[in-house]
Simulated scan of single mutants.
Amino acid sequence: MLDSETRKRVFWLLKRLTSYSLWAKKRDAWEVFAKAFENAVWTWPKNDPERMDADLLPRIYETLSLYNKGLEELGKGRRFVWRTGESLDVVMDRTGMVRNFLYTHPDYWERGSQTAPYPVKVEVLNRLLLASRYEGDYAPLEVPFIPRMSARYSSPGALLDPERYRYQFYQLPYPVFPAEIPDVPATTDLIISSGQRVPVDGIWEPVTVEREKAFGLVPTGVKSVANNGCFNYLVNDTKAPNVRGQWNEAESRTECVGTHWRLLWEDTRYKDGVIPDESTYFREATPAKQTTALAGDIEVNTGEVCPVSGLWAPKGYDRGPVRFVVGAVMSDLLVADVLGEQKAHWVVWHLVKAD
């Protein structure tokens, strides 16, 4: 966090993750998913092994209602909606639950976790659900000031490392930074300690404070302030969190320690009821120029997105090639078992011929 470019990127990302526009996009994507899920509940055959659980519907629409309630307040600059138990905090809890219990077939799920790529029909719904998710979207949520809990971000890698956006069965889009990232504002004189009430919404920097001492004994005034970790977004009237300390070998855990927090930027957005143009937060990555690939050069798994339009063949199976277009979800493969029953198999697809 001493590198200027790193500081600018983290600051820009935290403003993006706490913007009205990002949370509005999350809400809109959730509505699309909700309608698609409801349609699946009412139209997929009752004997369909991929049938959706109707018991999730009330929770899905309750979440949409909470999104609407939270965005109405956020659009007026009222950020208490991210405090524990408030609307957008509850939204994140409910969306996580729906994501974890979307499809509980034992071949694909165990104890709240996906264990294998979903069947194609389920994966289509899953992709709609994931469209409402952004890496780091927990950034503004209150961290309860209790033992063993620390600020959400201890290092910039948690926000900037592309590997943090990759998961076992899917990948979240990495943000596209502007060519010229605005500078981090000049530091302020407002400093609080872990456990104290946060006086204003905004982005805060953990710092160590060294004080001058009268005759080397009694602290008098501040001598120096130095960075002590990654910026975090803190909401007004919550308690400033601790930060991660050293690893405790005896208890096999990282200790949480107190720190000072210095205000970098007070968030006063939307208090006038105006939502500015925030499109710069959602630039699309420039697609790489597609090149002709040789057979077998590119391989993707069932459930992943097709990177190149063309003919693809399942690796290890004597089947003819299938055409997939770029952006489509790669399907599984129906294979007959010893009794002749057709069952879906996860496969590796390799490119035979690009369009």
Rank of each mutant, 00 (worst) to 15 (best):
T254C: 02
R111G: 05
M1S: 13
E31W: 14
V325L: 14
F145S: 08
E210C: 01
S4L: 15
S155N: 11
D237F: 01
V81F: 02
L22P: 09
G157T: 11
Y118Q: 04
V322E: 09
E142S: 10
P58E: 03
T115K: 15
D201V: 07
V352I: 15
M97K: 05
G296Y: 10
P106E: 04
E5F: 08
R111N: 15
R99T: 14
F33S: 10
S279P: 05
L351C: 15
E249L: 12
L14V: 05
R164C: 13
K353A: 15
T95Y: 01
G273H: 09
V352E: 14
R269Y: 03
N39S: 13
W23G: 05
D48S: 11
P287M: 14
L190E: 12
D107V: 06
W42Y: 09
K26C: 14
G327T: 09
Y103P: 07
D137H: 10
G316F: 09
I203A: 11
I275W: 08
V243Y: 00
N301C: 05
N227M: 00
Q171K: 07
V90C: 01
P49A: 07
K121F: 01
G96N: 15
R283E: 12
E142T: 10
W346M: 12
S19D: 06
D93C: 00
L130M: 15
K289V: 15
A34W: 08
V32M: 02
E278Y: 11
S87K: 04
K213W: 02
S65V: 00
A131R: 13
P117M: 09
W204S: 07
S132F: 08
V143F: 06
G296H: 07
A285P: 01
R59L: 13
S150Q: 13
P199T: 13
F33N: 01
V338W: 08
L217W: 13
W82F: 14
E341V: 15
V338A: 12
R51G: 06
T280Q: 12
V218I: 15
V326D: 00
P58W: 06
A293V: 08
T6P: 05
W42G: 00
H260D: 14
L128P: 03
N39T: 09
E73C: 08
K26R: 15
G216F: 12
V348Q: 10
L141D: 04
L160D: 02
P287W: 14
Y165R: 04
Q196S: 14
S132L: 09
A131V: 01
G96A: 12
N232I: 00
R127D: 12
L294F: 09
D28A: 14
D161R: 04
Y170F: 15
S193C: 04
P321T: 05
V81A: 05
A344D: 09
V81C: 04
E255N: 12
L333W: 09
R9G: 01
W44P: 03
L234P: 02
P182C: 03
L64F: 01
W349E: 12
D161W: 02
S65W: 01
E72L: 14
